[in-house]
């Protein structure tokens, strides 16, 4: 089915961009943005499969849960990032290396 593959491709691009963003950005909030992209790629797949499968709204429900949990995750991660900034005076995640022996 052509339409389905289109949505899956977009989801794949979002996912890969998110992963690259997470691995290369050194700004803590940039890493968070990468996580958001990954979650959106997954969400797009959920909704697309829900649309093109005969199984009703399961995919949409899961997508809603993902959106809510992403909001929660962003709130906690942001609080951690602010604490990190208060302790290190920077948001560069490479500076958080106290635990490396």
């Amino acid at each position: 089915m052509d339409e389905l593959s289109g949505y899956l491709f977009v989801g794949a691009v979002l996912f890969v961009c998110g992963v690259i963003c997470m691995t290369t950005k050194r700004n803590g909030i940039g890493v968070l943005m990468g996580v958001e992209l990954v979650l959106n790629g997954a969400n797009l797949n959920f909704v697309a499969f829900s649309r093109f499968s005969p199984l009703g709204l399961d995919g949409q429900v899961v997508a809603l849960f993902v959106i809510v949990l992403a909001a929660a995750e962003a709130a906690v991660a942001l609080a951690i990032a602010l604490n990190f900034y208060n302790n290190h005076q920077t948001i560069d995640v490479d500076r958080g290396n106290e635990l490396s022996g």
Partner: peptide, 26 residues
Amino acid sequence: LHADFVGATQLLVYVGGTLVLLVFGV
């Protein structure tokens, strides 16, 4: 994809809420 409610939630929670929070963090 005919997912109106998910789309509206994405706008309200993600773009209007989470991202504003992120920009605040920035």
